[in-house]
Design a protein around this nucleic acid. Structure first.
Lengths: 330, 330
DNA sequence: ATCATAAATAACAACGTTGTTAATTTGATT
DNA sequence: AATCAAATTAACAACGTTGTTATTTATGAT
């Protein structure tokens, strides 16, 4: 492994000058700086993070706790965050262990900050975390943790969807999303749905919220099949997430119906790929890029001011595309 | 952060004695060792990995490249490997970036070894990796890489399944798995299936291998529905993986049929959870614990002997449970 | 040419560990 | 009680980097 001393020898300068040159310090002449830089490149120099970390007392690493690795929905979030932090010179350590052991490992590794994705499991164990020096940011767990947090106003997103459909004349709206779970991220959406239906004086049928067991393609598919057999059939449906939406579209297609002519569909999850999953989808939610940007910023701020407590609550938007239309009265 | 010097002060010994005591060196008296240990524990000492890494020239980290984070099938593999390596004092850095950038990061972080899960993407970029000092182990890419590798004899697994069903009297066997992909991990199974059918002189119907687009629950479900409508209906089916199997069982159930009475099912993937997904499944494959044990061992060996080239080819087994039975001639 | 000053570079200490070598203490042997 | 070896502990150098301080070199005014 080539070190700054090797470069120094080759360049005929002292190693401290090399160090400064590599960090682009103004204390070293431009000419020598260029010279050193080219030698470093030629030799394939890579800084030793351990040494740097030792002296700077920062690891340059950020721990991401992601206990439920199966949930693919979050994967684009992680990928983006990973990318953005990398640009800022941080490496992300992804841990799939449970919260407690993940934090234990991160502590030993002396990460500069920890990002926790809130879900059933982690939320319940937040309380058991003994205070530590490492700043923690949680996502999707507002109100459930004593730590800094970035979150999305999920209830508001669903309300936007209901209002949009109501404005288009729809009165009989169904919601497909996980109802029987303890996951507060899901229940808040369903509660908002029920409440907004009442607020707007719309039809509040008993089975407006479809029963299901998960948030995956097949769950959406089955729930949509059940929904389509109801009489009268709902004229619009709100989906709780992208995977569900895919299943719903499949079921509608197999049933010989078309979107939005026969059924309008609004989906939660404001992702780029929502534009090309068959029908360009009308969606509600905070754009993924917005979420990741806020998370990244918040983490970096937290590293600068470890004692501060930030709470960011992102407001969702409605993006109207081709999957919703005025109610057909034929 | 408490260091060995802090402990030394408190214990009234030199910091080098503390270092030795903590590493359980025989060079320090048992009495003082206990004393130091108790103080360290009391103060909540955590070794500084950066410092240790600097002097030992090892990072104690192993990079895992997992580009297709969506594939949930591998998640239990990773979790187990993570666990085992942790026991050996290693931390695993999981990277969801593509192979090249993942390796770049790992190089900078000076991981002691890199584990790459082979898939479409990574296999094609293996060739572009410039030689580096860090040993690489690949999984599921035997024959496609110049690196050490642990792999499963997938073809043999499918052959075992066919033979088992043939022995039970089945002559009309279908295979549900991804046929139209470039993924060599899948095609090798299908080729083995076709070949073994011929070898045993069984019925080789045209549509024995079902068309499908993926390896998830819903893909299996749809393929199984299609299969059940064929006349004559196959009396047995081999599934290409656990998620598919779940979908297949669902479809069979919805069709009013029962396993194994009406249809025998053998599934690829020898996982513990195969015992309780409705019907206890007859499976073929290498037990997940065996795979992870071999991967872990291989990585540790590779760290010890970076220059060596190991190739481990694991032979699958047949585990007979309740999802297969003799052919019914009623 | 001489000196003050600024610019550029070199030297040094520190970060927290580990492994090696030196110093001290202990205990047995005479 | 003196000696020597063994056991125990302390001191030191090193790992590769950064930040601070000291030294050298160049620049300009007198």
């Amino acid at each position: 492994m080539v070190t700054i001393k090797d470069i120094a020898d080759r360049a005929g300068v002292s190693f401290s000058t090399v160090s400064k040159a590599l960090r682009d310090s103004p204390l070293v002449q431009n000419k020598t700086k260029q010279h050193i830089l080219s030698i470093a490149k030629e030799m394939g120099y890579q800084p030793n993070l351990a040494a740097r970390s030792l002296v700077s007392r920062k690891s340059g690493a950020i721990g991401v706790v992601w206990p439920s690795i199966e949930r693919a929905a979050l994967s684009s979030l992680i990928t983006k965050i990973n990318e953005q932090l990398e640009k800022k010179g941080y490496i992300t350590l992804l841990s799939i262990s449970h919260l407690e052991s993940a934090i234990e490992i991160f502590r030993r590794y002396q990460v500069d900050a920890i990002l926790v994705f809130g879900d059933r499991d982690s939320i319940s164990s937040f309380s058991s975390i003994s205070p530590l020096q490492i700043p923690i940011l949680t996502y999707g767990a507002a109100g459930y943790t004593p730590f800094s947090t970035v979150d999305v106003n999920r209830g508001q997103a669903v309300r936007l969807a209901v209002r949009h459909l109501a404005r288009l004349g729809h009165k009989d709206i169904a919601y497909i999303g996980e109802p029987q779970t303890q996951d507060p991220l899901q229940t808040v959406k369903i509660e908002a749905f029920r409440d907004e239906i009442v607020q707007l004086g719309l039809q509040a049928r008993d089975n407006a919220v479809l029963q299901m067991n998960g948030l995956e393609f097949h769950d959406g598919y089955l729930a949509a099949r059940a929904m389509l057999e109801q009489t009268p059939r709902p004229t619009a449906v709100i989906s709780g997430g992208i995977d569900l939406t895919r299943g719903i579209l499949r079921a509608i297609g197999e049933h010989g119906l078309s979107v939005p002519h026969d059924v309008s569909v609004v989906s939660y999850d404001n992702l780029p790929q929502m534009e090309d999953i068959g029908v360009p989808m009308t969606v509600v939610g905070v754009a993924i890029a917005t979420i990741t940007a806020h998370i990244t910023t918040a983490i970096l701020e937290l590293i600068d001011q470890p004692e501060s407590l930030k709470t960011v609550y992102l407001e969702p938007e409605l993006v109207v595309r081709a999957s919703t239309s005025h109610l057909n009265n034929d």
